[in-house]
Every structure is written in structure tokens, then in C-alpha cells.
Design a protein around this nucleic acid. Structure first.
Lengths: 226, 226
DNA sequence: TAAGTATGTTACAGTTTTGTTAAAAATTAA
DNA sequence: TTAATTTTTAACAAAACTGTAACATACTTA
């Protein structure tokens, strides 16, 4: 899924510059020229990251930031503050109000891009890389395909998500609860044993032609990708 | 557990300033004055965050950054670059090498603190390896694996918890009651002799190939990890 | 030294956890 | 709609782990 970015900034020239370039980079971008309206649209748009100007005609960036951090479903939204204020005091105020990063004007687009990527990499590993690899296993998120070496592997949707999840942190052991939470759609209730069945199917699919087993069972803990 | 921060920076005055103030904030801080040594100590110290200088006498901060991102158990270590280079180009290079944030000198301590907190807030708890080591014994809590030297050791769940418990305070002697209380699930009742059997199993597992005995019996008291 | 106490070792039965299969239920595609 | 695919559950099999008892060995002390 493409990454969505929302911009709240009152200077049209900046919006134009940033929005255009971000779209060229493959992001889906939406923006607003003022605070109150921006806050509303933001909730509809559900972005993966917010670029937020400090000085706005109505609400201040700080207020927006605080307001966002109070909303339970936006609590973790990565926020980059965008502002002319370069004083150290201001940076601290900005960061403490809940922003994750802070860029002072004037800035180059490349700096914005680098910080966006750094922040996205941190906040949600799966929004960045298009494909994941481990040993001779390759998963392409765009094509939704999996390969073991040269061989193409057909996976059902759940097995695909399961493998995708494991590939983000290979070697790490996950409990069944963690797997459920991350691989299954929210608020769904399935038996934890259901996972075992999907693990089995995934194993069967990726262990082709006598190749090495790639999923490790850790008794009383869970599973890991080797 | 307190948050551990590691600093690699060649200017003693900066180390002193930052380290002292961070400790006042309740962090556990360790530091190194150069790259190669720092990288080694870092792996032992297992910090939750790294403050990394760009310009170092031997390795550059960029190289250290890249090297860290290649280590599977340090992949998610939050890194803040600390440097005199303020040019936009450099920032991009720094962030793209895998750093999560970037502070230019001169900085105020409060700005460093604000950025540290912003980054820690963002980073997923538990992604940083809380590994335990003693002599050539290594226990990885994330991967749930144990190594003696290079050799991988397979342990059952109880033996794993037992070793984990001993590794927190090596050399300390624990009574069977203390072991029961800390290693066994609450409200379970097992004979104290059961511990002896698990100790034996653990011993057998970790004393591979004529290596030195690591568990000491203290008659009429209990056991300790040497 | 011998008796008494503490620990080492082993085997095994019972328990828990995981693997595997098949069929019912749900979802998606035609 | 029906057909095809996918997901979930349940049931049983297999494997791994646990606790205990029983005996062996080592240490302590009278």
C-alpha cells in the first residue's frame, strides 16, 4: 500500500513544492491551508505521516499536535514540525508537544524527504521497503509474490501476511498473541491454534524440494523465521 | 528497567556534559572516545539508544551506523547523529545511512534530551535486544536462543528461564526457594529436588565439548552461575 | 569410620504443547 | 446464483517437556 502524507501549511508555495515532489516519489499527498479544517480532513484522510506548520492563521501547530496526541487512533501518527522558528527553546517545545521531528525553514526538499523516510522507517517498518528478503526467500509487496531462490511460491492471503510479518524481523520469536495482533485484521477473534494450521501451510509452501526449514518452533513461546 | 544510552564521541568535554546530565535524568550511560572500540563496547552494553558523533578519529559515524544496521540484533537501535556538519547534504547522508535523527553542534542539552525522548517514545519497546552475557555464554531474549561461544545450544523452556535468571546476577548464590519463586510460575508447587534435576539438565546442555563447568553447587545453600 | 545429610543421576509416567488432517463454515469469484 | 477458494475449528497423533521417585555418590560430623 502506498504511503499517505498529509500537510498542514498556510503558505501555498511550500505546499506546492513539497506536495509535488512527494507525489513524484510515490506518496499519496493531501493538504490543508489552515488548522481547524486540516484537523478534520486529516481524520478522514488517515495519513501515515503529518507535515505540520507551526504558524497557522487559526490554531497553532503546537495545539494541533497536542490535540492529535489525545485522539486514541492518532496517538502514534508520526509528525514532523515545519517552521521558521530555529531557536533551541522552540524546538524543545515542539518536540515535547508530541512532534517526532522538527525541520526549520528554509529547507531543501531532499532534507524533508530524508527525514520522512527516517521517521517512517522507525514508525512502521512495513511502510518503507517494497520487498523483504531473508536468505533465499524474497517477498515482493508490490507484486504480492514470494520466491524461494528462483522458484515462485503461491501463498494464500493469510500465509502471505504471516510471512511478511516474520520477514520484517527475522530470527525474532513471536508469541501467538503477537502474531494474531499483527497478522489478523483488528478485533477479530480466532483460536490461537488456528495460527498453527497456517504455520503448517506456510511451512509446506516454502519448504520446496527438500530445502532447509525456515520456520522455527519455540516451545511454549511461539514461532520465528529461523 | 532503566533506559541505557551509549555515546560515541571523541570530544571529552561533550561526553562529560551529556553523560552527566543524562545520568541526572535517570539514564544509565556509557561512552567511548573512538569508533572501533565504541562498536565493541556498544555490543556488550546493549543500549536502548545511541548518540553518535559524525567525525571520529578512526571510523566515521556513517560507517558505524551502516555497520549497526547490518547486525540483526541491533537493527532497530535508535540512533541520533551528533555533529558539527550543518549542511543539508550531510543531514541527508546521515539519515540515509540509517540514523533516526540528527543534531548539529552547538546544541543545548535540553534539545538533546527532547530528541532522545521523542525517539524513545517512537521506538517500539522491546525491539532493542536485552541480551545477557557471561564469559562465553550468551542468551538472546528476543530470539530466545543461547550460545556457548559460537555454538548454539538448545534448551527447554524451564532450562531457558533458569539460565536467564542466573545470568542477571552471575556469581550470586540462590537458595532453592529463591529459584522456585523466580523461575517457576506463581502459585505452582513443586518439590525443591525438582530444581536439582533441571540444574543437571542445564549443566549438561551448556557444558559442551569439555568446556568449563559454569554452574556451582554451594552445599546447603543452593546454586550460582560460577 | 559410620551414620546422617545433601546433591547427582537416571528412568519413566503423566502432562502439555505442537503437528497433522479433514471437514464444516465463511468468503470470494465467476 | 453456484462454484471455487480460503479460513477456522475440532479431533487425534506425535513430540517435547516436567516432576517425581529411587538409587548412587559425595560430603559432614560425631
Amino acid at each position: 500500500m502506498a504511503t499517505k502524507i498529509f500537510i498542514i501549511e498556510d503558505e501555498p508555495s511550500i505546499i506546492k513544492l513539497v506536495q509535488h515532489n512527494l507525489e513524484k516519489e510515490g506518496f499519496i499527498v493531501s493538504s490543508s491551508l489552515n488548522g481547524n479544517e486540516g484537523l478534520k480532513e486529516l481524520k478522514k484522510f488517515q495519513p501515515h505521516l503529518l507535515l505540520l506548520d507551526w504558524m497557522l492563521p487559526d490554531l497553532s501547530g503546537i495545539d494541533i499536535c497536542k490535540s492529535i496526541r489525545r485522539e486514541s487512533n492518532l496517538k502514534n501518527l508520526p509528525i514532523i514540525m515545519l517552521t521558521a522558528k530555529g531557536e533551541s527553546e522552540d524546538k524543545i517545545k515542539g518536540l515535547n508537544s508530541g512532534a517526532d521531528d522538527y525541520i526549520t525553514k528554509p529547507f531543501s526538499f531532499n532534507e524533508v524527504l530524508a527525514r520522512i523516510n527516517a521517521l517512517l522507517r522507525r514508525s512502521e517498518p512495513n511502510t518503507v521497503a517494497d520487498n523483504l528478503e531473508y536468505e533465499d526467500l524474497k517477498l515482493d509487496r508490490i507484486e504480492k509474490r514470494v520466491y524461494r531462490g528462483e522458484k515462485h511460491i503461491d501463498l494464500g492471503p493469510t500465509e502471505f501476511r504471516l510471512l511478511e510479518f516474520f520477514l520484517v524481523n527475522p530470527k525474532r520469536v513471536y508469541t501467538r498473541d503477537q502474531i494474531l495482533e499483527n497478522v489478523w485484521p483488528n478485533n477479530i477473534n480466532v483460536e490461537s491454534r488456528t495460527i498453527d494450521v497456517h504455520i503448517r501451510r506456510l511451512r509446506q509452501a516454502i519448504n520446496i524440494g527438500g530445502k532447509k526449514e525456515l520456520i522455527r518452533t519455540v516451545r511454549s513461546s511461539g514461532y520465528s523465521l529461523i
